[in-house]
């Protein structure tokens, strides 16, 4: 779809749909991921990398795991999986598999 030039109101615009590919949010940083966080720990999101699942990576972004976001590990389930994180002001449970997609670093001082 392309962006049409302005016509008179109240005509509707056609707009580009939100992009799906995860390349622009990928930050290849070796090191810790969400899965490595300990209970109560805080961290800062560096990027999302999910090579086999670009739609999944995009979903993580849409859930609030954006570069620079503050994340805190809240609790683990009794059998170690899934894990609750606090991000963007709300709590979300992720499985280890998804948590591994998000690389993090120590929180910005």
């Amino acid at each position: 779809m392309s962006i049409l030039s302005v016509a008179t109101a109240p005509q509707r615009r056609r707009a580009r749909r939100a992009d799906v590919p995860a390349q622009s949010v990928v930050d290849v940083a070796t090191g810790a991921t969400l899965a490595d966080m300990a209970t109560g720990q805080s961290a800062r999101v560096l990027g999302i990398e999910a090579p086999h699942d670009p739609a999944g990576a995009r979903r993580m972004f849409d859930l609030g795991f954006v570069p620079g976001a503050e994340v805190r590990m809240v609790r683990r389930a009794p059998l170690a999986d899934p894990v609750v994180f606090r991000v963007a002001g709300y709590d979300i449970a992720l499985r280890r598999e998804q948590a591994r997609w998000v690389s993090v670093a120590a929180p910005a001082s």
């Binding site: 086999h52 979903r59 709300y90 709590d91 979300i92 449970a93 499985r95 998804q98």
Partner: peptide
């Protein structure tokens, strides 16, 4: 199809 990533909001 690929597995749906699992995530669940805890409101």
């Amino acid at each position: 199809g690929p597995l749906l990533p699992f995530y669940m909001e805890m409101p």
